[in-house]
């Protein structure tokens, strides 16, 4: 089922959340759900699109958001919320937990069988937040560009079975609603602890931003503390590679 119609069941019967997804707008096609959210912010509004023509990843990299294949959506929020990207990774993991045990790759990619199936990008502009989530659902290996096939997967390519994007979205929104309310109520420490445990980074040997070494811990802001040959480094962003296997 392609187009915005894929989400009709969710729009007809909203998820019953307090904040996130009280209102859901579905588009056949949009430039980017994050851009729409930053331009038309309404607290808790969810924008979902069957296809994004300018879906973005980190550093403006293209996010492959082909029609009919994935769940591409954004939650618009008023204000900035520390820990949101951690809470979002946990929410996606927990929403899918009844069917699959996804792993979180620091900081907030979700992996299935070692392949990335979900990416999260939070954007802040002038007191507004766009929490963008892209989850690959119906892709086969051939749907990914050749250079990504070894690294990217979808729920169906990795797990088989049938997946209804509207119902996956409903489950994620339900989890996100709880965790965003928790964060707004001062639950950052709890969210951070759960997320840091899920990342399981302590002791891993990594390379990131030209730094190679052993991860000592994830510190309070979420950065990696890495013990390298030339001393300790704090890593706040970058492409993380594991040098000790998956």
């Amino acid at each position: 089922m392609n187009g915005a119609i894929a989400y009709d069941s969710l729009i007809a019967a909203p998820p019953g959340t307090v904040l996130v997804g009280r209102k859901v707008i579905a588009f056949d096609e949009i430039d980017s759900t994050n851009i729409y959210a930053l331009d038309h912010c309404e607290d808790g509004l969810v924008i979902v699109a069957d296809r994004q023509t300018a879906g973005r990843g980190r550093l403006g990299r293209t996010w492959h958001s082909a029609p009919g294949l994935g769940l591409w959506f954004t939650v618009a929020l008023e204000g900035h919320l520390e820990g949101l990207s951690f809470a979002a990774a946990l929410a996606v993991r927990d929403a899918l937990a009844p069917r699959v045990a996804l792993k979180i790759k620091w900081p907030n990619d979700l992996l299935c069988h070692g392949k990335k199936i979900c990416g999260i990008l939070v954007e802040h502009r002038a007191g507004r937040t766009a929490l963008g989530i892209g989850l690959n659902v119906h892709h086969t290996a051939e749907d990914f560009p050749a250079e990504l096939r070894a690294k990217a997967g979808s729920l169906e390519s990795e797990l088989g079975g049938t997946w209804d994007r509207a119902e996956v979205l409903r489950a994620i929104l339900t989890e996100l609603d709880r965790s965003i309310i928790l964060l707004r109520g001062g639950g950052l420490v709890e969210v951070h602890r759960t997320w840091a445990q899920a990342c399981a980074m302590a002791g891993r040997i990594i390379r990131c931003n030209g730094v190679e070494g052993r991860v000592l811990e994830i510190e309070g802001r979420g950065a990696l503390v890495v013990d390298a040959a030339d001393g300790r480094h704090l890593i706040f962003s970058g492409d993380l590679e594991f040098l000790d296997g998956h």
């Binding site: 980190r58 550093l59 949101l84 990207s85 900081p107 907030n108 999260i120 990008l121 939070v122 954007e123 802040h124 502009r125 002038a126 802001r221 979420g222 950065a223 706040f236 962003s237």
Partner: peptide, 8 residues
């Protein structure tokens, strides 16, 4: 940017 949070 920090941890995939893009702050304009």
């Amino acid at each position: 940017e920090a941890m995939k949070l893009m702050n304009e």
